[in-house]
């Protein structure tokens, strides 16, 4: 019983991945638009996109760390 509740809690914590997914999706879409408009700036845009994605991904990572802590601490 307790194990089930812990699993549900960890699953809810990982829902933070939703935000990161939306964020990275928007960033990639805008980057594609920017490259289509100015193909010569694609190098700089790629760098910025990678950086932005890495930063947006951090929220998903926090959710993952919290889920991990829930599983390990409450086991």
């Amino acid at each position: 019983m307790i194990g089930t509740i812990i699993a549900i809690g960890a699953g809810i914590a990982v829902l933070t991945g939703l935000g990161a997914g939306i964020g990275i999706g928007i960033a990639t879409g805008k980057a594609t638009e920017a490259v289509a408009r100015q193909p010569e700036a694609s190098g700089k845009i790629t760098t910025l996109l990678l950086l932005g994605s890495a930063l947006a991904e951090a929220t998903a990572i926090y959710g993952f760390v919290v889920a991990l802590m829930i599983i390990i601490m409450l086991k």
Partner: peptide, 12 residues
């Protein structure tokens, strides 16, 4: 945030 980002990414 610096510490958790690096740790979480590598572990994830």
């Amino acid at each position: 945030s610096l510490c958790m980002r690096l740790f979480g990414n590598v572990l994830g």
